[in-house]
């Protein structure tokens, strides 16, 4: 894989349970879960795709849809180069919500963000066409007005899902990305220093005074209240506590 790699930061927004996480799961793992746990906060996933000699790496933040979590969304779309605004074609309410997200993105997100409007769960129309509550034309119209890409998908069957991402990949200006894999040199220095807690705790601090009495109280406390079961196994940790209170500075700024 010596193709040039471009990273695209992409965020998914949309009402709860429209299938955002399912779309990502389909794209990243080509999988579908009937009962996917609701996303809390946000979830991060990545996927690489080759488009015309180029490798595009999608770095995806899948946000939680519930209103209560909405205040977190700006953190995720602020630096995004692309956004999927998803609604459920069987839920008119979710389309209203999608309009809101588009508006918010236009107002708050980066100016040249690429937005795709995605109507999901079209597989449900196969069984019963009357399930459709948001006409395709409605979506197309909004997309045209707001200058969005538009797709109707099914995360369940996989229909059209990859196409959304490919299209976005084609539209994001290809910039030569720095090789993302940093080799992390300099980080492994302390690998062989034994107990990592200890070294990490102690190295950066200069030992300071902690009164002997407080130490004894501390040990008494730690030891007495220690889970009965672990008292033996944990004798060592308590000893470590002794080290700690000896060497950690409580009072450094």
């Amino acid at each position: 894989m010596n193709n040039p790699v471009t990273s695209i930061k992409l965020v998914l927004l949309g009402e709860v349970a429209v299938g955002k996480s399912s779309i990502v799961l389909r794209f990243v793992s080509n999988d579908f879960a009937e009962n996917k746990e609701p996303t809390i906060g946000a979830a991060f996933l990545t996927q690489r795709v080759n488009i015309n000699e180029h490798t595009i790496k999608f770095e995806i933040w899948d946000t939680a849809g519930q209103e209560r979590f909405a205040s977190l969304a700006p953190m995720y779309y602020r630096n995004a180069q692309a956004a999927l605004v998803v609604y459920d074609v069987t839920k008119p309410q979710s389309f209203i919500k999608a309009r809101h997200w588009v508006k918010e993105l236009h107002e708050q997100a980066s100016k040249d963000i690429i937005i795709a409007l995605v109507g999901n769960k079209i597989d449900m129309l196969d069984e019963d066409p009357t399930e459709r509550k948001v006409a395709r034309e409605e979506g197309e119209k909004l997309a045209q007005e707001e200058n969005l890409l538009f797709f109707e998908t099914s995360a369940k069957t996989g229909a059209n899902v990859n196409e959304v991402f490919l299209k976005i990949g084609e539209n994001v200006p290809l910039k030569q990305a720095a090789d993302g894999s940093n080799n992390g040199s300099g980080l492994n220095v302390r690998r062989d220093n034994g107990w990592i807690w200890q070294t990490r705790l102690i190295q950066p601090r200069k030992p300071l005074t902690v009164a002997a009495e407080s130490l004894v109280v501390l040990i008494t406390k730690v030891h007495i209240s220690f889970p009965e079961r672990f008292r033996t196994e944990y004798g060592g940790v308590a000893a470590w506590a002794v080290n700690l209170c000896k060497t950690v500075s409580w009072n450094q700024p």
Binding site: G194, W195, W197
Partner: peptide, 26 residues
């Protein structure tokens, strides 16, 4: 595993005691 460093020689330097009080107790 991790605690073995308690007794390795090299770890001694982390436990320099700068406070007189300490040696009276520990």
């Amino acid at each position: 595993a991790s605690t073995t460093s308690f007794t390795t020689d090299g770890s001694g330097k982390y436990f320099q005691d700068l406070d007189e009080d300490w040696s009276a107790v520990i």
